[in-house]
Design a protein around this nucleic acid. Structure first.
Length: 390
DNA sequence: TATGTTTGACCAGGG
DNA sequence: TCCCTGGTCAAACAT
């Protein structure tokens, strides 16, 4: 089953359509998936522009009510995720919404459609999308995927809700409308050279994915470090830069000097097998990231960020499914809830990278795709030395 | 024309 | 020291 499903998923991924989350949902529940697809394809009743708006609003509003939904969600999903959902097919939307998927759905469904639109969402400084995504709050939804890419927008809502900027709302609407593009603006650094850039602030934009949030992870170490200060939730702190280190591995596949930009744009791909996620990073001369645009969503859990302590639990690729399914929901939640002892090395890395109880490193080991682990293991080696700029 | 992606060559690190 | 793996760079190609 895994193979088939996976294959389907892969195809889907290959196609610029449904977001991973949608796919995941599809795995669990056709109804849900259908709904999601309907959105995507503009068929089901939810494709209406209004829908988008509503969703977007939901996004924003969720910031307020979301928490409640999310919290509730676990109750429904964890135990009967499949059963309950499947049984209530036509009304799955409602169910999903109840469970907190509404938000996710909103984003993901549209993900993959237009990469051109950007709907920037402001993330409080110091808060990385990853953290948000991985925050326990999302666990319930974690079913879809632990990774931010899964479209754990809810958190976005949360975070966004805070600094509710009119622009944000507006953008959110736009966002929900056509795209799944999120932009997280975070200040990378206040450097004079980049001042111009700073104006617009370094931003992380998710182009197809709501899940863009995870993408943030990949902010260069520089940013990470800078962002560390904020981790504790000290949003007020200066370095707004969120350690964007999403924990995913990226491979730079291109670099280009953009016309209207003084800074070169680098193109990255997620190194994970079959992971369609790409990101465009614009840096200023100093090498500071001024803008990050994510495309697509990760169809895999966070890779073991690096030095895998012990044995990579080699889980078959299928693990991936597992991850999405139960494993993810369970292990992830566990790891998140309970901070497992981590290797010092890992811990340190994590410190620099992330505070959040995310499966970045050791978690990743558990949750992550074993395969990734292997690859990452090797990759990570080099990366550690020469961290992929992003 | 500009942007994004692909591809091949080169380089670096690890075993 | 050699080979393998993987990353980056840059030109070319595609959209």
């Amino acid at each position: 089953m895994t193979s088939n499903r996976r294959g389907a998923v892969m195809e889907d991924w290959m196609l610029p359509t449904p977001s991973p989350r949608t796919l995941m949902l599809s795995l669990f529940n056709d109804d849900l998936s259908s709904d999601a697809f309907s959105d995507v394809f503009g068929d089901g009743g939810s494709d209406k522009p209004q829908d988008g708006i509503e969703r977007s609003n939901a996004f924003v509003d969720l910031s307020q009510g979301e928490s409640s939904q999310v919290e509730k969600a676990p109750l429904h999903f964890e135990p009967n995720l499949l059963g309950s959902i499947q049984e209530s097919s036509p009304n799955n939307n409602n169910l999903a919404e109840k469970n907190g998927f509404c938000g996710l759905k909103i984003d993901t469904s549209r993900v993959g459609y237009s990469a051109s639109i950007r709907s920037p969402i402001m993330i409080p400084a110091g808060v990385s999308p990853r953290e948000l995504l991985e925050s326990p709050v999302f666990l319930p939804n974690a079913i879809a995927q632990p990774s931010p890419t899964t479209g754990k927008l809810p958190f976005l809502m949360r975070t966004n809700a805070r600094p509710t900027t009119p622009s944000v709302h507006k953008k959110a609407q736009d966002l929900s409308r056509d795209d799944h593009t999120f932009s997280f603006k975070h200040i990378v650094r206040s450097k004079p050279p980049c001042s111009s850039i700073l104006d617009k602030g370094s931003s992380v934009i998710n182009q197809n994915d709501p899940s863009a949030s995870d993408r943030d992870h990949h902010i260069p170490e520089k940013e990470r470090e800078v962002g560390e200060g904020n981790r504790d939730g000290d949003y007020s702190s200066a370095p707004i830069i969120t350690h964007a280190e999403d924990g995913y591995n990226w491979r730079k596949y291109g670099k280009r000097q953009v016309k209207n930009s003084d800074h070169p744009t680098s193109y990255y791909k997620c190194t994970h097998q079959n992971c369609p996620v790409k990101k465009k990073v614009e840096r200023c001369q100093d090498g500071d990231i001024t803008e990050i645009v994510y495309k697509g969503s990760h169809n895999h859990p966070l890779p073991p960020s690096d030095s895998r302590p012990g044995g990579p639990e080699n889980v078959p690729d299928d693990h991936f499914q597992d991850v999405h399914g139960e494993v993810l929901g369970t292990k992830l939640s566990v790891s998140l809830n309970t901070e497992e002892p981590v290797d010092t090395s890992v811990t340190e890395a994590r410190e620099t990278i992330d505070i959040s109880p995310t499966p970045s490193s050791e978690d990743s080991n558990q949750i992550q795709n074993p395969k990734d682990g292997d690859e990452d293991a090797t990759k990570s080696k080099r990366r550690l030395d020469n961290p992929p700029s992003i």
